[in-house]
């Protein structure tokens, strides 16, 4: 009788296991597959990607790109992500856009004087697609950093935004003219 109870308890345990879906993983495996999951202790940052300025400058937009313009200007709504150690604004953009399958194209860091990766296009919208002064700019906590996107190391709680501009930033909220090295 006692033996039966023991077996029943064991069965309940197995059923419980199966119902809750507990996994068996090594610590490394767990870390690897859960690195981007937000927990109470996680350091996090947010990312938002917008292209509102295009909506006011549709006449300048390269023909054929209309279908890629989000009607509300939102390419990625403000979303929270785990901050990995050493993450730059570019790392965050890269990870988040890959996760959401938003195409991004960029030029490597050794192509410009700032030794920074340069974001050329997000979601089929490229530099110069909306006039000669158009391209991607980014903001952290409401300000436009003048250093390159892969030179900007993020901190816990940073709010990162990528904005498409049709007028070198003058059409964006909070913009103050900063240096931009142009060349070819």
């Amino acid at each position: 009788m006692k033996k039966d109870l023991l077996v029943v308890a064991f069965i309940l345990f197995i059923v419980g296991w199966l119902v809750t879906g507990t996994k068996i993983q090594s610590v490394e495996e767990y870390y690897l597959t859960h690195i981007d999951e937000i927990t109470e202790d996680s350091e996090t940052v947010t990312l938002e990607i917008r292209s509102d300025t295009v909506l006011d400058a549709m006449d300048k937009l390269k023909p054929g790109l209309e279908k890629y313009v989000e009607p509300d200007g939102e390419i990625l709504k403000k979303t929270e992500y785990v901050l990995r150690s050493g993450d730059t604004a570019f790392d965050l953009l890269d990870r988040a856009t890959r996760h959401h399958r938003i195409p991004v194209e960029y030029q490597g860091a050794d192509y410009n004087i700032y030794n920074s990766i340069y974001v050329q296009g997000i979601n089929y919208l490229y530099e110069f697609n909306c006039g000669p002064l158009s391209g991607w700019m980014y903001k952290v906590n409401g300000e436009f950093p003048s250093r390159g996107v892969s030179q900007y190391e993020l901190q816990d709680g940073d709010e990162v935004e990528f904005h498409y501009t049709c007028d070198v930033g003058r059409d964006l909220v909070g913009y103050i003219r900063q240096s931009k090295k142009v060349g070819n």
Binding site: A109, D110, N112, I113, P145, S146, R147, Q151
Partner: peptide, 14 residues
């Protein structure tokens, strides 16, 4: 500080 990789004491390719 905005161009941290271009140092005043290190030759720069460009």
């Amino acid at each position: 500080a905005d161009n941290p990789s271009s140092l005043p004491d290190e030759s720069n390719s460009m």
